[in-house]
Protein backbone atom coordinates (compact mmCIF):
# COMPACT_ATOMS: atom_id res chain seq x y z
CA UNK A 1 0.00 0.00 0.00
CA UNK A 2 1.16 3.50 -0.76
CA UNK A 3 2.19 5.13 2.55
CA UNK A 4 0.46 8.53 2.53
CA UNK A 5 2.19 11.10 4.72
CA UNK A 6 -1.06 12.63 5.98
CA UNK A 7 -2.31 9.26 7.24
CA UNK A 8 1.00 8.39 8.92
CA UNK A 9 1.08 11.79 10.63
CA UNK A 10 -2.56 11.44 11.64
CA UNK A 11 -2.32 7.97 13.17
CA UNK A 12 0.96 8.62 15.01
CA UNK A 13 0.09 12.08 16.34
CA UNK A 14 -3.51 11.55 17.32
CA UNK A 15 -2.67 8.08 18.65
CA UNK A 16 -0.08 9.67 20.97
CA UNK A 17 -2.55 12.40 21.93
CA UNK A 18 -5.29 9.91 22.81
CA UNK A 19 -2.73 7.83 24.72
CA UNK A 20 -1.61 10.89 26.69
CA UNK A 21 -5.12 12.03 27.59
CA UNK A 22 -6.12 8.47 28.51
CA UNK A 23 -3.18 8.13 30.91
CA UNK A 24 -3.67 11.64 32.31
CA UNK A 25 -7.39 11.23 32.92
CA UNK A 26 -7.17 7.74 34.36
CA UNK A 27 -4.18 8.70 36.54
CA UNK A 28 -6.04 11.74 37.83
CA UNK A 29 -9.03 9.60 38.75
CA UNK A 30 -7.15 7.69 41.42
CA UNK A 31 -5.71 8.88 44.64
CA UNK A 32 -2.03 8.05 44.09
CA UNK A 33 0.74 8.87 46.54
CA UNK A 34 2.07 11.43 44.10
CA UNK A 35 -1.00 13.29 42.80
CA UNK A 36 -0.81 15.76 39.93
CA UNK A 37 -1.66 19.38 40.55
CA UNK A 38 -4.61 20.83 38.68
CA UNK A 39 -2.21 22.93 36.61
CA UNK A 40 -0.29 19.85 35.55
CA UNK A 41 -3.46 18.02 34.54
CA UNK A 42 -4.49 21.05 32.48
CA UNK A 43 -1.10 21.28 30.79
CA UNK A 44 -1.07 17.57 29.91
CA UNK A 45 -4.65 17.70 28.58
CA UNK A 46 -3.83 20.77 26.49
CA UNK A 47 -0.83 19.06 24.85
CA UNK A 48 -2.95 15.97 24.20
CA UNK A 49 -5.71 18.01 22.58
CA UNK A 50 -3.24 19.82 20.33
CA UNK A 51 -1.83 16.48 19.17
CA UNK A 52 -5.26 14.94 18.63
CA UNK A 53 -6.63 17.94 16.77
CA UNK A 54 -3.64 18.42 14.47
CA UNK A 55 -3.78 14.71 13.66
CA UNK A 56 -7.47 14.81 12.86
CA UNK A 57 -7.04 17.87 10.65
CA UNK A 58 -4.22 16.21 8.75
CA UNK A 59 -6.38 13.13 8.19
CA UNK A 60 -8.74 15.19 6.07
CA UNK A 61 -5.85 16.09 3.72
CA UNK A 62 -5.91 12.69 2.10
CA UNK A 63 -9.57 13.05 1.10
CA UNK A 64 -9.99 13.78 -2.59
CA UNK A 65 -13.27 15.58 -1.94
CA UNK A 66 -13.09 17.07 1.58
CA UNK A 67 -16.24 19.16 1.13
CA UNK A 68 -18.25 15.99 1.76
CA UNK A 69 -16.29 15.08 4.91
CA UNK A 70 -19.24 16.11 7.09
CA UNK A 71 -21.12 13.12 5.69
CA UNK A 72 -18.55 10.73 7.14
CA UNK A 73 -20.70 9.89 10.18
CA UNK A 74 -23.63 8.52 8.17
CA UNK A 75 -22.81 4.81 8.19
CA UNK A 76 -21.97 4.21 11.84
CA UNK A 77 -23.90 0.96 11.72
CA UNK A 78 -21.36 -0.77 9.46
CA UNK A 79 -18.33 1.44 8.79
CA UNK A 80 -15.37 1.64 11.19
CA UNK A 81 -14.30 4.88 9.54
CA UNK A 82 -17.69 6.40 10.36
CA UNK A 83 -17.45 5.04 13.91
CA UNK A 84 -13.99 6.49 14.36
CA UNK A 85 -15.16 9.87 13.08
CA UNK A 86 -18.14 9.89 15.42
CA UNK A 87 -16.11 8.76 18.46
CA UNK A 88 -13.49 11.44 17.70
CA UNK A 89 -16.09 14.19 17.43
CA UNK A 90 -18.11 13.14 20.49
CA UNK A 91 -14.87 12.97 22.48
CA UNK A 92 -14.56 16.77 22.39
CA UNK A 93 -17.56 17.70 24.58
CA UNK A 94 -16.58 15.00 27.09
CA UNK A 95 -12.94 16.01 27.36
CA UNK A 96 -13.91 19.70 27.39
CA UNK A 97 -16.20 19.12 30.37
CA UNK A 98 -13.42 17.22 32.13
CA UNK A 99 -10.87 19.97 31.43
CA UNK A 100 -13.34 22.67 32.47
CA UNK A 101 -13.98 20.98 35.83
CA UNK A 102 -10.26 20.51 36.45
CA UNK A 103 -9.77 24.18 35.62
CA UNK A 104 -12.48 25.07 38.11
CA UNK A 105 -10.41 23.28 40.70
CA UNK A 106 -12.35 20.04 41.06
CA UNK A 107 -10.02 17.23 42.05
CA UNK A 108 -10.70 14.23 39.83
CA UNK A 109 -10.30 11.74 42.65
CA UNK A 110 -12.51 13.73 45.05
CA UNK A 111 -16.05 12.85 44.00
CA UNK A 112 -17.57 9.79 42.39
CA UNK A 113 -19.06 11.86 39.58
CA UNK A 114 -15.72 13.45 38.69
CA UNK A 115 -13.88 10.12 38.94
CA UNK A 116 -16.45 8.60 36.60
CA UNK A 117 -16.04 11.47 34.13
CA UNK A 118 -12.25 11.10 34.18
CA UNK A 119 -12.53 7.35 33.58
CA UNK A 120 -15.02 7.83 30.75
CA UNK A 121 -12.63 10.33 29.14
CA UNK A 122 -9.76 7.87 29.38
CA UNK A 123 -11.64 4.84 28.12
CA UNK A 124 -13.27 6.86 25.32
CA UNK A 125 -9.82 7.90 24.10
CA UNK A 126 -8.67 4.28 24.01
CA UNK A 127 -11.82 3.14 22.20
CA UNK A 128 -11.23 5.86 19.58
CA UNK A 129 -7.73 4.51 18.89
CA UNK A 130 -9.21 1.00 18.75
CA UNK A 131 -11.63 2.13 16.05
CA UNK A 132 -8.74 3.63 14.05
CA UNK A 133 -7.07 0.24 14.13
CA UNK A 134 -10.31 -1.50 13.16
CA UNK A 135 -10.54 0.56 9.94
CA UNK A 136 -7.49 -1.36 8.78
CA UNK A 137 -8.19 -4.64 10.55
CA UNK A 138 -11.60 -4.95 8.92
CA UNK A 139 -10.20 -5.13 5.37
CA UNK A 140 -10.22 -8.75 4.24
CA UNK A 141 -8.27 -7.70 1.15
CA UNK A 142 -5.07 -7.04 3.13
CA UNK A 143 -3.82 -10.07 5.02
CA UNK A 144 -1.19 -8.09 6.95
CA UNK A 145 -3.92 -5.89 8.47
CA UNK A 146 -6.84 -8.29 8.75
CA UNK A 147 -5.94 -9.64 12.19
CA UNK A 148 -6.52 -8.85 15.85
CA UNK A 149 -2.98 -7.58 16.38
CA UNK A 150 -3.64 -4.50 14.25
CA UNK A 151 -5.98 -2.65 16.68
CA UNK A 152 -3.98 -3.96 19.66
CA UNK A 153 -0.84 -2.47 18.10
CA UNK A 154 -2.52 0.87 17.57
CA UNK A 155 -3.62 0.99 21.20
CA UNK A 156 -0.35 -0.19 22.71
CA UNK A 157 1.75 2.21 20.62
CA UNK A 158 -0.60 5.12 21.44
CA UNK A 159 -0.38 4.36 25.14
CA UNK A 160 3.38 3.94 24.91
CA UNK A 161 3.89 7.34 23.28
CA UNK A 162 1.36 8.82 25.69
CA UNK A 163 3.19 7.30 28.66
CA UNK A 164 6.57 8.65 27.59
CA UNK A 165 5.09 12.09 26.91
CA UNK A 166 3.38 11.96 30.30
CA UNK A 167 6.68 11.35 32.14
CA UNK A 168 8.55 13.95 30.13
CA UNK A 169 5.92 16.68 30.53
CA UNK A 170 5.65 16.00 34.27
CA UNK A 171 9.43 16.24 34.59
CA UNK A 172 9.27 19.59 32.75
CA UNK A 173 6.90 20.90 35.40
CA UNK A 174 9.03 19.72 38.26
CA UNK A 175 8.19 16.28 39.57
CA UNK A 176 8.16 12.88 38.05
CA UNK A 177 8.73 9.92 40.27
CA UNK A 178 11.03 7.12 39.24
CA UNK A 179 8.04 4.81 39.59
CA UNK A 180 6.12 6.64 36.89
CA UNK A 181 8.97 6.54 34.39
CA UNK A 182 9.35 2.85 35.16
CA UNK A 183 5.69 2.30 34.31
CA UNK A 184 6.29 4.17 31.04
CA UNK A 185 9.16 1.84 30.23
CA UNK A 186 6.92 -1.19 30.87
CA UNK A 187 4.48 0.23 28.31
CA UNK A 188 7.38 0.37 25.86
CA UNK A 189 8.17 -3.27 26.55
CA UNK A 190 4.55 -4.33 26.06
CA UNK A 191 4.20 -2.35 22.82
CA UNK A 192 7.48 -3.80 21.56
CA UNK A 193 6.35 -7.35 22.30
CA UNK A 194 3.10 -6.89 20.43
CA UNK A 195 4.83 -5.28 17.44
CA UNK A 196 7.44 -8.02 17.23
CA UNK A 197 4.74 -10.70 17.40
CA UNK A 198 3.04 -8.82 14.54
CA UNK A 199 6.22 -8.86 12.44
CA UNK A 200 6.42 -12.64 12.86
CA UNK A 201 2.68 -13.05 12.29
CA UNK A 202 2.77 -11.44 8.86
CA UNK A 203 6.00 -13.23 7.94
CA UNK A 204 4.84 -16.16 5.80
CA UNK A 205 2.60 -15.53 2.81
CA UNK A 206 -0.71 -17.25 3.49
CA UNK A 207 -3.31 -15.28 1.57
CA UNK A 208 -5.09 -15.79 -1.74
CA UNK A 209 -3.02 -16.79 -4.75
CA UNK A 210 -3.05 -15.89 -8.44
CA UNK A 211 -4.81 -19.25 -8.91
CA UNK A 212 -7.84 -18.47 -6.77
CA UNK A 213 -7.83 -14.90 -8.11
CA UNK A 214 -8.28 -16.21 -11.65
CA UNK A 215 -10.20 -19.42 -10.77
CA UNK A 216 -7.58 -21.63 -12.49
CA UNK A 217 -6.64 -23.64 -9.45
CA UNK A 218 -5.19 -26.70 -11.20
CA UNK A 219 -2.49 -25.06 -13.32
CA UNK A 220 0.29 -22.54 -13.10
CA UNK A 221 -0.89 -19.06 -14.00
CA UNK A 222 1.40 -16.31 -15.27
CA UNK A 223 0.49 -12.76 -16.05
CA UNK A 224 1.47 -11.92 -19.62
CA UNK A 225 0.18 -8.36 -19.95
CA UNK A 226 -1.56 -6.00 -17.56
CA UNK A 227 -3.21 -4.21 -20.44
CA UNK A 228 -2.01 -0.68 -19.75
CA UNK A 229 1.18 1.11 -20.72
CA UNK A 230 1.34 3.62 -17.84
CA UNK A 231 0.35 3.44 -14.18
CA UNK A 232 -3.29 3.33 -13.13
CA UNK A 233 -5.15 4.27 -9.95
CA UNK A 234 -4.77 0.64 -8.90
CA UNK A 235 -1.01 0.42 -9.43
CA UNK A 236 -0.44 3.82 -7.77
CA UNK A 237 -2.55 2.98 -4.74
CA UNK A 238 -1.75 -0.69 -4.24
CA UNK A 239 1.39 -1.43 -6.24
CA UNK A 240 3.82 0.19 -3.81
CA UNK A 241 6.64 -2.19 -3.09
CA UNK A 242 9.94 -1.93 -1.28
CA UNK A 243 12.86 -4.35 -1.54
CA UNK A 244 12.78 -7.06 1.10
CA UNK A 245 16.19 -6.20 2.63
CA UNK A 246 15.24 -2.53 2.96
CA UNK A 247 12.07 -3.53 4.79
CA UNK A 248 14.08 -5.66 7.20
CA UNK A 249 16.51 -2.78 7.79
CA UNK A 250 13.62 -0.43 8.47
CA UNK A 251 12.10 -2.91 10.92
CA UNK A 252 15.34 -2.80 12.89
CA UNK A 253 15.34 1.00 12.79
CA UNK A 254 11.75 1.07 14.05
CA UNK A 255 12.55 -1.37 16.84
CA UNK A 256 15.75 0.39 17.93
CA UNK A 257 14.40 3.94 17.80
CA UNK A 258 10.93 3.10 18.98
CA UNK A 259 11.58 0.60 21.75
CA UNK A 260 15.23 -0.14 22.54
CA UNK A 261 16.58 3.40 22.93
CA UNK A 262 13.68 4.76 25.03
CA UNK A 263 13.82 1.82 27.44
CA UNK A 264 17.61 1.98 27.72
CA UNK A 265 17.39 5.71 28.45
CA UNK A 266 14.85 5.12 31.21
CA UNK A 267 16.62 2.14 32.74
CA UNK A 268 20.19 3.39 32.63
CA UNK A 269 20.16 7.06 31.62
CA UNK A 270 18.19 8.66 34.41
CA UNK A 271 19.92 10.18 37.45
CA UNK A 272 18.88 11.75 40.68
CA UNK A 273 18.35 15.34 39.59
CA UNK A 274 16.72 16.85 36.52
CA UNK A 275 15.96 14.23 33.88
CA UNK A 276 14.07 16.47 31.47
CA UNK A 277 16.66 16.25 28.70
CA UNK A 278 17.00 12.49 28.87
CA UNK A 279 13.22 11.93 28.88
CA UNK A 280 12.87 14.40 25.99
CA UNK A 281 15.38 12.33 24.04
CA UNK A 282 13.38 9.18 24.82
CA UNK A 283 10.19 10.85 23.56
CA UNK A 284 11.80 12.05 20.31
CA UNK A 285 13.38 8.66 19.66
CA UNK A 286 10.08 6.87 20.30
CA UNK A 287 8.15 9.20 17.98
CA UNK A 288 10.72 8.69 15.22
CA UNK A 289 10.57 4.92 15.71
CA UNK A 290 6.77 4.81 15.65
CA UNK A 291 6.72 6.98 12.51
CA UNK A 292 8.95 4.41 10.79
CA UNK A 293 6.73 1.64 12.19
CA UNK A 294 3.64 3.32 10.73
CA UNK A 295 5.33 3.79 7.37
CA UNK A 296 6.16 0.08 7.40
CA UNK A 297 2.59 -0.78 8.37
CA UNK A 298 1.52 0.60 5.00
CA UNK A 299 4.57 -0.33 2.92
CA UNK A 300 4.45 -3.99 4.02
CA UNK A 301 0.72 -4.39 3.35
CA UNK A 302 0.01 -6.28 0.12
CA UNK A 303 -3.48 -5.79 -1.28
CA UNK A 304 -4.89 -8.82 -3.13
CA UNK A 305 -5.44 -6.73 -6.26
CA UNK A 306 -1.70 -7.19 -6.83
CA UNK A 307 -2.58 -10.74 -7.87
CA UNK A 308 -4.02 -9.17 -11.02
CA UNK A 309 -0.77 -7.28 -11.58
CA UNK A 310 1.56 -10.25 -11.48
CA UNK A 311 1.95 -11.23 -7.82
CA UNK A 312 1.67 -15.00 -7.23
CA UNK A 313 0.53 -14.76 -3.62
CA UNK A 314 -0.42 -12.03 -1.18
Amino acid sequence: MHPAFSVIFFTVTSGAGYGLIAITAIYSAFDFSQPMTGAQTLMLSAVALVLITSGLISSTFHLANPKNAWRAFSRVRTSWLAREGLLAILFYPIVMLYVYLVWRGVDASSSTAMTTLALITGVWAIVTVFSTGMIYASLKTIRQWNNALTPVNYISLGLMLGGLLFSWLLSLSGNVSANLTMVASYMVVIAATIKIVYFFWIGTPAGPTINTATSFTARTVRLLDVGHTAGTFLTDEFGYQVARDRLVALRWIAIILGFVLPSLIIWFGLGEGDNTLMLGAAVISAFAGVAVERWLFFAEARHVVNLYHGAQQC
Binding site: T141, F233, V305
Partner: peptide, 14 residues
Amino acid sequence: CMGCNLCAWACPYG
Protein backbone atom coordinates in the same frame (compact mmCIF):
# COMPACT_ATOMS: atom_id res chain seq x y z
CA CYS B 1 -18.62 10.59 -1.87
CA MET B 2 -15.73 12.29 -0.04
CA GLY B 3 -12.97 10.45 -1.90
CA CYS B 4 -11.46 8.60 1.06
CA ASN B 5 -10.56 5.53 -1.07
CA LEU B 6 -11.58 3.10 1.67
CA CYS B 7 -14.04 1.30 -0.62
CA ALA B 8 -11.30 0.75 -3.21
CA TRP B 9 -9.14 -0.71 -0.43
CA ALA B 10 -11.98 -3.05 0.50
CA CYS B 11 -12.55 -4.30 -3.07
CA PRO B 12 -10.49 -7.41 -3.92
CA TYR B 13 -11.17 -7.15 -7.64
CA GLY B 14 -9.79 -3.70 -8.43
